[in-house]
Amino acid sequence: MSIKRRTFLGLIGAAGVTVASTGARAAGNAHFDGYPGSKGVLFDATRCIGCRKCEAACNAVNELPAPAEKFDDLTVLDRSRRTDAKTFTVVNKYETPSGGPVYRKMQCNHCLEPACASACFVKAFAKTPEGAVSYDASVCVGCRYCMIACPFNIPTYEYDEPLSPRVRKCTMCRPRILEGRLPGCVEACPKEALTFGTRDELIKIARKRIEKYPDRYLDHIYGEREMGGTSWLYISGVPFSQIGLREDLGYASAPELTSGALAAVPVVAGLWPALLGGLWAINKRKEKIARQEKREAVENAVARASAEAESKLSAALSKAEVENRRRIEVEVKRALEEAGLNDTKEEG
Protein backbone atom coordinates (compact mmCIF):
# COMPACT_ATOMS: atom_id res chain seq x y z
CA MET A 1 0.00 0.00 0.00
CA SER A 2 2.59 2.43 1.15
CA ILE A 3 4.38 2.40 -2.15
CA LYS A 4 1.28 3.05 -4.14
CA ARG A 5 0.22 5.82 -1.87
CA ARG A 6 3.39 7.61 -2.59
CA THR A 7 2.40 8.12 -6.16
CA PHE A 8 0.15 11.00 -5.70
CA LEU A 9 -1.92 12.59 -8.39
CA GLY A 10 -3.72 15.83 -8.01
CA LEU A 11 -6.34 15.87 -10.62
CA ILE A 12 -8.13 18.61 -12.24
CA GLY A 13 -10.90 18.16 -14.65
CA ALA A 14 -10.74 20.66 -17.47
CA ALA A 15 -10.49 18.52 -20.56
CA GLY A 16 -8.81 15.93 -18.39
CA VAL A 17 -5.72 17.96 -17.66
CA THR A 18 -3.85 16.06 -15.01
CA VAL A 19 -1.40 17.74 -12.76
CA ALA A 20 0.83 15.03 -11.42
CA SER A 21 2.79 16.10 -8.46
CA THR A 22 4.85 14.58 -5.73
CA GLY A 23 6.17 16.38 -2.73
CA ALA A 24 9.47 16.80 -4.42
CA ARG A 25 7.77 18.34 -7.41
CA ALA A 26 5.82 20.69 -5.22
CA ALA A 27 9.08 22.18 -4.09
CA GLY A 28 10.93 22.00 -7.36
CA ASN A 29 13.89 19.75 -6.90
CA ALA A 30 14.57 21.09 -3.44
CA HIS A 31 14.43 18.76 -0.50
CA PHE A 32 14.33 19.50 3.17
CA ASP A 33 16.32 17.86 5.89
CA GLY A 34 14.73 19.47 8.90
CA TYR A 35 16.28 21.80 11.44
CA PRO A 36 19.92 20.95 12.03
CA GLY A 37 20.59 19.69 15.53
CA SER A 38 16.91 19.35 16.38
CA LYS A 39 16.21 17.14 19.35
CA GLY A 40 14.37 13.88 19.69
CA VAL A 41 13.86 10.90 21.94
CA LEU A 42 14.70 7.28 21.31
CA PHE A 43 12.47 4.67 22.91
CA ASP A 44 13.87 1.19 23.37
CA ALA A 45 11.08 -1.33 23.74
CA THR A 46 13.48 -4.00 24.99
CA ARG A 47 14.28 -1.90 28.03
CA CYS A 48 10.84 -0.66 29.02
CA ILE A 49 9.36 -2.49 32.02
CA GLY A 50 5.96 -0.78 32.10
CA CYS A 51 6.49 0.96 35.45
CA ARG A 52 4.49 4.06 34.46
CA LYS A 53 7.07 6.37 36.01
CA CYS A 54 7.14 8.38 32.79
CA GLU A 55 3.38 8.80 32.95
CA ALA A 56 3.62 10.13 36.47
CA ALA A 57 6.45 12.49 35.58
CA CYS A 58 4.60 13.77 32.53
CA ASN A 59 1.54 14.40 34.64
CA ALA A 60 3.62 16.33 37.15
CA VAL A 61 5.72 18.49 34.85
CA ASN A 62 2.72 19.44 32.74
CA GLU A 63 0.57 20.09 35.81
CA LEU A 64 -2.18 17.84 34.57
CA PRO A 65 -5.09 16.83 36.77
CA ALA A 66 -4.63 13.70 38.87
CA PRO A 67 -5.88 10.55 37.15
CA ALA A 68 -8.58 8.21 38.48
CA GLU A 69 -6.08 5.42 39.11
CA LYS A 70 -2.80 6.15 40.82
CA PHE A 71 0.34 5.85 38.73
CA ASP A 72 1.67 2.98 40.80
CA ASP A 73 -1.42 0.94 39.96
CA LEU A 74 -0.12 -1.35 37.26
CA THR A 75 -3.39 -3.16 36.62
CA VAL A 76 -4.36 -0.42 34.18
CA LEU A 77 -1.81 -1.99 31.87
CA ASP A 78 -4.24 -4.82 31.28
CA ARG A 79 -6.44 -2.69 29.09
CA SER A 80 -5.40 -0.79 26.05
CA ARG A 81 -5.34 2.94 26.68
CA ARG A 82 -4.69 5.99 24.60
CA THR A 83 -3.76 9.59 25.26
CA ASP A 84 -6.56 11.90 26.22
CA ALA A 85 -7.07 15.51 27.17
CA LYS A 86 -5.62 14.86 30.63
CA THR A 87 -2.92 12.40 29.63
CA PHE A 88 -0.11 13.21 27.23
CA THR A 89 1.50 9.83 27.39
CA VAL A 90 0.48 6.27 28.19
CA VAL A 91 2.35 2.99 28.31
CA ASN A 92 0.56 -0.01 26.90
CA LYS A 93 1.29 -3.68 27.42
CA TYR A 94 1.33 -5.96 24.37
CA GLU A 95 1.31 -9.71 24.52
CA THR A 96 3.48 -10.91 21.68
CA PRO A 97 3.68 -14.33 20.03
CA SER A 98 7.42 -14.48 20.73
CA GLY A 99 6.69 -14.71 24.43
CA GLY A 100 6.51 -12.21 27.27
CA PRO A 101 4.81 -8.89 27.33
CA VAL A 102 6.37 -5.91 25.59
CA TYR A 103 5.63 -2.38 26.71
CA ARG A 104 5.50 0.68 24.57
CA LYS A 105 5.16 4.28 25.49
CA MET A 106 2.87 6.39 23.37
CA GLN A 107 2.94 10.16 22.95
CA CYS A 108 3.25 12.68 20.14
CA ASN A 109 5.96 11.58 17.76
CA HIS A 110 6.89 15.13 16.81
CA CYS A 111 6.95 14.41 13.11
CA LEU A 112 9.52 16.10 10.91
CA GLU A 113 6.70 17.12 8.56
CA PRO A 114 3.77 17.13 10.96
CA ALA A 115 0.40 16.14 9.57
CA CYS A 116 -1.25 18.19 12.29
CA ALA A 117 0.59 21.31 11.18
CA SER A 118 -0.17 20.67 7.53
CA ALA A 119 -3.85 20.23 8.37
CA CYS A 120 -4.34 23.13 10.73
CA PHE A 121 -6.02 26.04 8.96
CA VAL A 122 -4.82 28.62 11.49
CA LYS A 123 -1.19 27.52 11.80
CA ALA A 124 -1.67 26.52 15.42
CA PHE A 125 0.95 23.80 15.07
CA ALA A 126 4.55 24.36 14.11
CA LYS A 127 7.70 22.32 13.97
CA THR A 128 10.10 24.24 16.18
CA PRO A 129 13.86 24.30 15.62
CA GLU A 130 14.30 22.36 18.87
CA GLY A 131 12.36 19.47 17.40
CA ALA A 132 9.12 19.75 19.34
CA VAL A 133 5.87 20.28 17.47
CA SER A 134 4.25 23.15 19.32
CA TYR A 135 0.61 24.06 19.65
CA ASP A 136 -0.84 27.52 20.11
CA ALA A 137 -4.28 27.50 21.71
CA SER A 138 -4.76 31.23 21.22
CA VAL A 139 -5.62 30.82 17.55
CA CYS A 140 -7.14 27.32 17.57
CA VAL A 141 -10.71 27.27 16.30
CA GLY A 142 -11.39 23.74 17.42
CA CYS A 143 -12.17 22.20 14.04
CA ARG A 144 -10.26 19.06 15.05
CA TYR A 145 -8.94 18.51 11.55
CA CYS A 146 -5.52 17.98 13.14
CA MET A 147 -6.96 14.94 14.89
CA ILE A 148 -8.26 13.61 11.60
CA ALA A 149 -4.87 14.16 10.02
CA CYS A 150 -2.50 12.75 12.63
CA PRO A 151 -1.59 9.23 11.52
CA PHE A 152 -0.71 8.26 15.09
CA ASN A 153 -4.04 9.38 16.59
CA ILE A 154 -2.24 11.63 19.03
CA PRO A 155 -4.00 15.00 19.43
CA THR A 156 -6.88 14.94 21.87
CA TYR A 157 -9.58 17.44 22.58
CA GLU A 158 -11.17 18.93 25.67
CA TYR A 159 -14.67 17.90 24.71
CA ASP A 160 -16.08 18.78 28.10
CA GLU A 161 -14.88 22.34 28.02
CA PRO A 162 -17.88 24.38 26.80
CA LEU A 163 -16.24 27.68 25.91
CA SER A 164 -12.49 27.34 25.61
CA PRO A 165 -11.62 23.79 24.63
CA ARG A 166 -8.05 23.14 23.57
CA VAL A 167 -6.25 20.45 21.66
CA ARG A 168 -3.92 18.62 24.04
CA LYS A 169 -0.82 16.66 23.27
CA CYS A 170 2.71 16.02 24.41
CA THR A 171 4.92 19.09 24.08
CA MET A 172 8.22 17.20 24.17
CA CYS A 173 8.59 19.35 27.26
CA ARG A 174 9.71 22.21 25.06
CA PRO A 175 9.82 24.70 27.96
CA ARG A 176 12.17 22.36 29.80
CA ILE A 177 14.32 21.78 26.73
CA LEU A 178 14.69 25.52 26.28
CA GLU A 179 15.88 25.68 29.89
CA GLY A 180 18.39 22.98 29.11
CA ARG A 181 16.63 20.29 31.08
CA LEU A 182 15.48 16.84 30.04
CA PRO A 183 11.86 16.06 29.19
CA GLY A 184 10.02 14.89 32.29
CA CYS A 185 9.46 11.36 31.11
CA VAL A 186 13.04 10.86 29.99
CA GLU A 187 14.36 12.09 33.32
CA ALA A 188 12.04 9.80 35.25
CA CYS A 189 12.73 6.57 33.39
CA PRO A 190 14.63 4.21 35.72
CA LYS A 191 15.67 1.88 32.91
CA GLU A 192 16.97 4.36 30.37
CA ALA A 193 14.43 3.11 27.93
CA LEU A 194 14.21 6.73 26.82
CA THR A 195 17.20 8.57 25.45
CA PHE A 196 17.17 12.28 24.69
CA GLY A 197 19.50 13.84 22.14
CA THR A 198 19.73 15.29 18.68
CA ARG A 199 17.89 13.17 16.19
CA ASP A 200 21.04 12.47 14.21
CA GLU A 201 22.80 11.20 17.30
CA LEU A 202 19.85 9.09 18.29
CA ILE A 203 19.80 7.36 14.96
CA LYS A 204 23.49 6.56 15.35
CA ILE A 205 22.91 5.23 18.87
CA ALA A 206 20.05 3.09 17.65
CA ARG A 207 22.15 1.70 14.82
CA LYS A 208 24.93 0.84 17.20
CA ARG A 209 22.60 -1.01 19.55
CA ILE A 210 21.09 -2.95 16.68
CA GLU A 211 24.54 -3.81 15.38
CA LYS A 212 25.82 -4.84 18.77
CA TYR A 213 22.83 -7.04 19.67
CA PRO A 214 21.45 -8.30 16.38
CA ASP A 215 19.46 -11.02 18.16
CA ARG A 216 17.84 -8.61 20.48
CA TYR A 217 16.63 -6.01 17.95
CA LEU A 218 14.92 -5.95 14.62
CA ASP A 219 16.90 -4.08 12.03
CA HIS A 220 14.57 -1.15 11.74
CA ILE A 221 14.32 2.21 13.41
CA TYR A 222 10.67 3.11 13.53
CA GLY A 223 10.23 6.78 12.82
CA GLU A 224 13.32 7.18 10.73
CA ARG A 225 11.23 7.42 7.60
CA GLU A 226 7.62 6.68 8.60
CA MET A 227 5.33 9.51 7.45
CA GLY A 228 8.37 11.47 6.38
CA GLY A 229 10.19 10.77 9.65
CA THR A 230 9.56 11.57 13.30
CA SER A 231 11.64 13.02 16.08
CA TRP A 232 10.54 10.31 18.49
CA LEU A 233 12.17 7.07 17.40
CA TYR A 234 11.57 3.47 18.38
CA ILE A 235 13.58 0.27 18.34
CA SER A 236 12.18 -3.05 19.31
CA GLY A 237 12.72 -6.77 19.37
CA VAL A 238 9.29 -7.60 18.03
CA PRO A 239 7.66 -6.35 14.86
CA PHE A 240 6.37 -2.85 15.41
CA SER A 241 2.87 -3.74 14.33
CA GLN A 242 2.72 -6.05 17.37
CA ILE A 243 3.31 -3.16 19.72
CA GLY A 244 0.71 -0.88 18.19
CA LEU A 245 2.89 0.99 15.72
CA ARG A 246 1.37 0.79 12.29
CA GLU A 247 3.73 -0.29 9.59
CA ASP A 248 1.44 0.59 6.71
CA LEU A 249 1.68 4.35 7.00
CA GLY A 250 4.05 4.81 4.14
CA TYR A 251 7.02 7.13 3.96
CA ALA A 252 5.32 10.05 2.25
CA SER A 253 4.90 12.99 4.59
CA ALA A 254 1.60 14.75 5.08
CA PRO A 255 2.49 17.84 3.03
CA GLU A 256 3.40 15.54 0.16
CA LEU A 257 0.01 13.88 0.37
CA THR A 258 -1.86 17.13 -0.07
CA SER A 259 0.46 19.21 -2.20
CA GLY A 260 -1.05 17.81 -5.40
CA ALA A 261 -4.55 18.85 -4.47
CA LEU A 262 -3.28 22.21 -3.30
CA ALA A 263 -1.43 22.69 -6.56
CA ALA A 264 -4.71 22.19 -8.42
CA VAL A 265 -6.29 25.15 -6.64
CA PRO A 266 -4.51 27.92 -8.55
CA VAL A 267 -5.09 26.01 -11.76
CA VAL A 268 -8.82 26.29 -11.27
CA ALA A 269 -8.67 29.88 -10.12
CA GLY A 270 -6.45 30.78 -13.04
CA LEU A 271 -8.06 28.89 -15.88
CA TRP A 272 -11.73 28.68 -15.05
CA PRO A 273 -12.50 32.37 -15.61
CA ALA A 274 -10.88 32.24 -19.05
CA LEU A 275 -12.63 29.02 -20.03
CA LEU A 276 -16.00 30.00 -18.63
CA GLY A 277 -15.73 33.54 -19.95
CA GLY A 278 -14.93 32.09 -23.36
CA LEU A 279 -17.87 29.75 -23.13
CA TRP A 280 -20.11 32.62 -22.24
CA ALA A 281 -18.80 34.72 -25.10
CA ILE A 282 -19.32 31.89 -27.57
CA ASN A 283 -22.86 31.42 -26.42
CA LYS A 284 -23.47 35.13 -26.44
CA ARG A 285 -22.27 35.26 -30.00
CA LYS A 286 -24.32 32.24 -30.99
CA GLU A 287 -27.31 33.89 -29.48
CA LYS A 288 -26.59 37.08 -31.34
CA ILE A 289 -26.22 35.24 -34.62
CA ALA A 290 -29.36 33.29 -33.91
CA ARG A 291 -31.19 36.50 -33.20
CA GLN A 292 -29.85 38.07 -36.38
CA GLU A 293 -30.75 35.04 -38.41
CA LYS A 294 -34.17 35.07 -36.95
CA ARG A 295 -34.60 38.68 -37.84
CA GLU A 296 -33.36 38.09 -41.34
CA ALA A 297 -35.59 35.10 -41.72
CA VAL A 298 -38.52 37.11 -40.58
CA GLU A 299 -37.64 39.89 -42.96
CA ASN A 300 -37.21 37.45 -45.80
CA ALA A 301 -40.45 35.77 -45.00
CA VAL A 302 -42.22 39.07 -44.92
CA ALA A 303 -40.66 40.07 -48.21
CA ARG A 304 -41.48 36.78 -49.77
CA ALA A 305 -44.98 36.90 -48.46
CA SER A 306 -45.59 40.36 -49.77
CA ALA A 307 -44.12 39.48 -53.14
CA GLU A 308 -46.32 36.49 -53.30
CA ALA A 309 -49.29 38.51 -52.30
CA GLU A 310 -48.54 41.02 -54.99
CA SER A 311 -48.21 38.44 -57.68
CA LYS A 312 -51.37 36.79 -56.49
CA LEU A 313 -53.08 40.12 -56.57
CA SER A 314 -51.94 40.91 -60.06
CA ALA A 315 -52.87 37.44 -61.19
CA ALA A 316 -56.21 37.87 -59.63
CA LEU A 317 -56.54 41.25 -61.23
CA SER A 318 -55.64 39.99 -64.64
CA LYS A 319 -57.92 37.05 -64.21
CA ALA A 320 -60.62 39.40 -63.14
CA GLU A 321 -59.95 41.54 -66.18
CA VAL A 322 -60.26 38.61 -68.49
CA GLU A 323 -63.43 37.55 -66.85
CA ASN A 324 -64.71 41.04 -66.95
CA ARG A 325 -63.96 41.41 -70.55
CA ARG A 326 -65.61 38.17 -71.30
CA ARG A 327 -68.62 39.17 -69.30
CA ILE A 328 -68.82 42.47 -71.15
CA GLU A 329 -68.50 40.73 -74.44
CA VAL A 330 -71.21 38.32 -73.50
CA GLU A 331 -73.40 41.18 -72.40
CA VAL A 332 -72.77 43.10 -75.55
CA LYS A 333 -73.46 40.07 -77.59
CA ARG A 334 -76.58 39.43 -75.75
CA ALA A 335 -77.61 43.04 -76.12
CA LEU A 336 -76.87 42.93 -79.77
CA GLU A 337 -78.77 39.75 -80.19
CA GLU A 338 -81.67 41.17 -78.35
CA ALA A 339 -81.51 44.26 -80.39
CA GLY A 340 -81.35 42.18 -83.54
CA LEU A 341 -84.28 40.20 -82.34
CA ASN A 342 -86.21 43.32 -81.66
CA ASP A 343 -85.28 44.60 -85.03
CA THR A 344 -86.57 41.54 -86.70
CA LYS A 345 -89.65 41.72 -84.58
CA GLU A 346 -90.18 45.29 -85.51
CA GLU A 347 -89.51 44.48 -89.04
CA GLY A 348 -91.76 41.52 -88.80
Partner: peptide
Protein backbone atom coordinates in the same frame (compact mmCIF):
# COMPACT_ATOMS: atom_id res chain seq x y z
CA UNK B 1 -13.11 32.19 15.94
CA UNK B 2 -14.46 30.85 12.66
CA UNK B 3 -13.11 33.84 10.77
CA UNK B 4 -9.61 33.45 12.24
CA UNK B 5 -8.31 31.38 9.34
CA UNK B 6 -9.36 34.09 6.92
CA UNK B 7 -8.38 37.23 8.77
CA UNK B 8 -5.96 36.34 11.52
CA UNK B 9 -3.74 33.37 10.87
CA UNK B 10 -3.85 31.76 7.45
CA UNK B 11 -2.86 28.11 7.46
CA UNK B 12 -2.56 27.94 3.70
CA UNK B 13 -1.21 24.40 3.60
CA UNK B 14 -4.51 23.10 4.91
CA UNK B 15 -7.25 21.99 2.59
CA UNK B 16 -9.64 23.07 5.27
CA UNK B 17 -8.32 26.59 4.80
Amino acid sequence: RLTYPIFLSQGTTSLLF
